[in-house]
């Protein structure tokens, strides 16, 4: 079954590549076309809803290829889910025993968050930035190899750890969407680009993603502290993985506040999203660089 799990990961990687190509193609086409006339929100019946000073949603490009792109992403998500479930059944624990498992799970989180936001807000352009990151993680996972490792004693507190990691993955996935939306915001001039959603819309999507991710990230850190308390007798020991996640958390906390401070709203706030996702990636890959309690090296030293 481990093999099947790995085939699923490979299939998902290919699907993501195809999804990326279709988004690029769709955008290239849209770029040439004029913007779809904006919908005027009609309340139906006799009333009307006026949305003062707010841009309408960009009408989704409902072309055939675009729809295929969405379905490719969803199919990739299904494959990744299957991969993780199969592996979970074989190993008997969540995806946290080694770097391979966590990379695949991180990829899953990104694809899941993207699929959700694409469904909800119809912003395909996010895929331009999100899909390569997810694909890259899966490729990285393949290079580290899919060997299943037994759990060292410190990782055997299954439920707590599973929840801790699962929430981290969803949070990181949503942060990646926030980063993508923020990046598109930052490359947009104030009046927006023709082939992109309006800057206000991008700003809002980024905020919505953080609204999901930030509470989860808070929980992740707290559950991590609970686990550390149980395993090592300290809820916080300033090991690099902990300080890196504290940094991440503070940056997103700063972002939430920046949105209500004059002079920070807009560009600066969105720059914080770039910094925040850099911190997420660093926290993830940091495992490779620094040891500490999270080095998964077991307890006896």
């Amino acid at each position: 079954m481990l093999n099947w799990s790995q085939y699923c990961v490979e299939a998902a990687t290919i699907l993501l590549a195809l999804a990326l190509m279709s988004s690029i193609f769709v955008l290239a086409v849209n770029r040439g076309a004029t913007r779809t006339p904006e919908l005027v929100a009609a309340g139906g019946g006799g009333g009307s809803v006026a949305l003062a000073e707010r841009p309408q949603e960009v009408a989704p490009a409902r072309g055939g290829l675009a729809v295929y792109g969405s379905w490719l992403t969803r199919l990739a998500l299904a494959f990744l889910t299957t991969a993780l479930v199969l592996r979970g059944i074989v190993t008997g624990h969540g995806p946290f025993a080694n770097q391979y498992e966590f990379a695949v799970a991180f990829g899953w989180g990104i694809v899941a968050a993207f699929a959700f936001f694409e469904y909800r807000y119809r912003v395909r352009a996010l895929g331009l930035l999100v899909l390569p990151v997810a694909g890259g993680l899966l490729l990285y996972a393949m290079t580290v190899g899919a060997k299943a490792d037994p759990l060292v004693p410190a990782l055997q507190n299954n439920l707590l750890l599973t929840v801790h990691v699962a929430l981290a993955i969803i949070a990181y996935g949503a942060f990646s969407v926030a980063c993508a939306a923020g990046a598109l915001y930052l490359i947009s001039p104030p009046e927006g680009r023709r082939w992109l959603p309006k800057p206000e819309k991008l700003d809002e999507i980024a905020y919505r993603a953080v609204v999901i991710a930030f509470p989860l990230m808070t929980l992740v850190i707290i559950l991590g502290a609970v686990w550390a308390q149980i395993a090592w007798g300290t809820y916080w020991s300033w090991d690099p993985k902990e300080t890196a996640s504290l940094f991440t958390w503070l940056i997103y906390g700063a972002y939430l506040h920046a949105r209500v401070v004059r002079g920070w709203r807009g560009r600066r706030a969105n720059w914080l999203l770039m910094l925040g996702f850099a911190a997420v990636l660093f926290t993830f890959f940091g495992n490779l660089f620094f040891g500490g309690l999270h080095s998964y090296s077991g307890v006896a030293k």
């Binding site: 309340g43 019946g45 006799g46 009333g47 009307s48 006026a50 003062a52 000073e53 707010r54």
Partner: peptide
């Protein structure tokens, strides 16, 4: 007449 969200219903 000016708020961000508004609607009129007969």
């Amino acid at each position: 007449d000016r708020s961000g969200l508004r609607a009129v219903i007969p």
